[in-house]
Amino acid sequence: MPGCVSRIYDAVNRLEVAMSYHRERHSVLASNVAHLDTPGYRPVDLQRAPAPEATQPWLTAPGHQVGPAGGETRTVVDDGGALVGPDGNAVQLERELAKIDANRVRYGTSAELVSRRMALLRYAAGDGNS
């Protein structure tokens, strides 16, 4: 089955992009929690979007790979909660912790998927004897 291994690599590359996004997002959310009491602080979040068509690498052969973070842009956006305290701080602890937990689960999911693809590769490399 030609192309099967390269499909595995392709999937791993995409998952790596997702993992690096979730890792970066964790820093952004951790910064919100650290600023729980900083006057005037507005919470931020990291948004990802597919890069515009022009900057997407062209995959013209089955062996071509998309590099890490290729094909997506990340922007830090203001994520003001509905409530702003008297000191101008708009961080809502529960909201941030919920986001951090969800982000951790997504990261773990991607890591698990990468692990399984690696196991597939090992299976293929070991001639089906692993």
């Binding site: 970066e24 820093s27 952004v28 951790a30 910064s31 650290a34 006057p39 602080y41 990291l46 830090v76």
Partner: peptide, 15 residues
């Protein structure tokens, strides 16, 4: 308390 920029962190991330 005040926010301070962090070394090699994403823009928007501050300590």
């Amino acid at each position: 308390l005040a926010s301070v920029p962090m070394n090699n962190a994403t823009a928007g991330v501050s300590g």
